[in-house]
Design a protein around this nucleic acid. Structure first.
Lengths: 369, 369
DNA sequence: TTGTAGGCGTTATCAG
DNA sequence: CTGATAACGCCTACAA
């Protein structure tokens, strides 16, 4: 390994001078700098990050508390965060959380000098990790938000504005009967995860203030219940003509299931995904209209806010909320006129293929894998 | 920040003794150890990772060259790798790659002492990154494989066995006309990414050796073409009764599109996903049968192989291939008898809703978003 | 079993 | 502008 001293020797300068040119921390005569640069190049010198970290008391590492949920837009968060960090000379470390003593562990990451700051995802409204981080004086930024936000750097999806917008857009198309699909995270470690909660509140307020009807469906986290959501809607909100799905998988499944039953999208019912990952849209037929989550923008913003803070750029905290943007597909249409309720026998004329499959399998003894 | 020296003072021992108990590197009398532990506890001491790294010349950091593709099973790789690393006292750093000078950058990660080893994903058959890593003498492990594997630690999906198995399973159900769907990565930086290549070769060999018919479909990476894959199959392989989809999104879209056309799954045609992410299966109706990628097993194995190597546990390289495991759904059935070709007019009796939607929109002036 | 002391490669403070 | 030199906090022979 080539050290600064070796570079210094070869360039016939002192080790400090090498440091000055490498870090651009003090003015150095053009000619001297050239000599140093040349030596660096010839020797293939790279400054040792650990020595640097030790001497400067800065590891230039950011720890990302790793997300539990396998949401597709999390991928873009992480991706953007890693890239933004790298651009500013930092590294992003993935920190898997263990449900117990999370907070203590996070704080000790900093105390051990391993990371300079922490990025937190999947923030809950009351999040003890945030409290601990504050007490420990550890720099951090949130992707998401807590209830109390005073002085906290955070970036978040503006669910309120997004849901409001979706309701508005549907209302403009003449819809009056709405359903909202969210994830049911109660009984999971993420029970206090705010997006579904905030979406639900906003939704109810949005429909109420417009004199519309709205029903909320909470889909349990296990996959099995995803497909039955159509039945659920037919049962509890048969008049629904507009569905807002904040659960990509369920929305995705739903658009197909409806169609298999002969319920046309968007003629009989309209659907839009909200806080969706972009990639989902083109996989359905008709193409799903989505209000896309600004994943990579948020990942980048959060990282930069944190680094700014780490580097002492003071000032007021970064507090940004970005609404989802509508990516038009073909699943939102004008409200149907006099459509029979979803519970009606009228829809039964198109039995689902899978029902037939089960039937025939039972009859002739063959079975599908 | 509490230092070892402070702990030593309080415990009335020397700094080295503290080091010995902290790292369990030399025997220490039970009583002394207790004193030290007590002092550590009282002071809230945490050993400084940077100082440790510098002195021991080991950063205990593993760099993961960050994947480009947004495959859902990559999430489980990364997740498992981070967890496995953490369990052994290492940290996983995400290293975003820039298409240019990748190799040089990777090697310098190591030279700068930032990472002890590298984990490479999305390995290409001829991968210059691997060559550079070898030349630089940098420890690494692959998730995936190159053509030349001598002395290399790697773990990979056994695509050969998986595809073979899928063909075998379908053949046992009486199928004779196969289609394989893979991603077309040519014209992308991942042109030499081996999974599609190997799957294609194995597939062709597998059908040929059994005297079956097989057609390969390469779906371009942009989303737009995903939906048209059904037409493509009808045109180029109208007799197909068994589809193996190594492209979750396309497979997913396909099962729905087929159904919308009145082509029943699995009565008229069978479909299975291969190297899929588990989550996909239950989102379709009928449930997609998948050969699941062993994502987390591979992430963990690769990480452990690398750490073993870093810690000098010599011996032969870890070279593991794990086949995908069949997760039965309801999309694979017995081959149909005398089914009309997919190109036949017979299927036209169920026009797709979206075709109608476009029509009616054009007629009455309304339009779907 | 415990202590002493010399690095590890940089940064940073102070002189010159 | 450039050069000494003392940290930075820990590891590890080597001694005792």
């Amino acid at each position: 390994m080539v050290t600064m001293q070796q570079v210094a020797d070869r360039a016939k300068v002192s080790i400090s001078t090498v440091s000055f040119v490498v870090n651009d921390t003090k003015p150095v005569m053009a000619e001297t700098r050239e000599r140093v640069l040349k030596a660096i190049d010839e020797l293939g010198y790279r400054r040792n990050s650990m020595a640097r970290a030790l001497a400067s008391r800065k590891s230039r590492v950011i720890a990302l508390i790793y997300p539990l949920l396998d949401h597709r837009h999390h991928h873009s968060f992480v991706d953007a965060a890693a890239t933004a960090a790298e651009e500013r000379g930092y590294s992003l470390v993935l920190w898997p959380v263990h449900s117990d003593n999370v907070s203590a562990e996070i704080a000790s990451l900093i105390q051990a000098g391993f990371a300079d700051g922490v990025l937190l995802m999947e923030v809950q409204l009351e999040d003890e990790r945030v409290t601990h981080l504050q007490q420990a004086g550890a720099p951090f930024a949130l992707i998401g938000r807590t209830r109390e936000l005073h002085g906290i750097d955070y970036v978040d999806i503006d669910f309120e504005r997004s849901v409001e917008q979706a309701v508005e857009d549907f209302a403009a198309l003449g819809h009056r009967d709405f359903s909202l699909i969210i994830e049911d995270l109660s009984d999971t470690p993420l029970a206090g995860y705010s997006p579904p909660i905030r979406a639900e509140q906003t939704f109810e307020e949005a429909v109420r203030s417009r004199g519309l009807n709205g029903t909320v469906f909470r889909v349990p986290h296990e996959r099995a219940s995803i497909l039955s959501i159509a039945d659920e809607i037919a049962r509890r909100a048969p008049e629904t003509t507009a569905i807002i799905g904040m659960h990509d998988d369920a929305t995705f499944a739903l658009i197909n299931v409806l169609r298999h039953r002969g319920i046309r999208v968007p003629e009989d019912i309209s659907i839009a995904g909200i806080a969706s990952a972009t990639a989902m849209a083109t996989l359905t037929d008709p193409a799903l209209s989505t209000y896309d989550a600004p994943g990579s923008a948020l990942g980048r913003l959060a990282t930069e806010a944190l680094i700014d803070r780490l580097e002492g750029r003071g000032g007021p905290p970064t507090q940004v909320r970005i609404a989802c943007t509508l990516m038009p597909g073909a699943s939102m249409g004008p409200a149907p006129v006099d459509r029979p309720p979803l519970s009606s026998e009228a829809w039964k004329r198109h039995p689902s293929t899978s029902a037939r499959a089960v039937e025939s399998a039972a009859l002739d003894g063959t079975h599908a894998i």
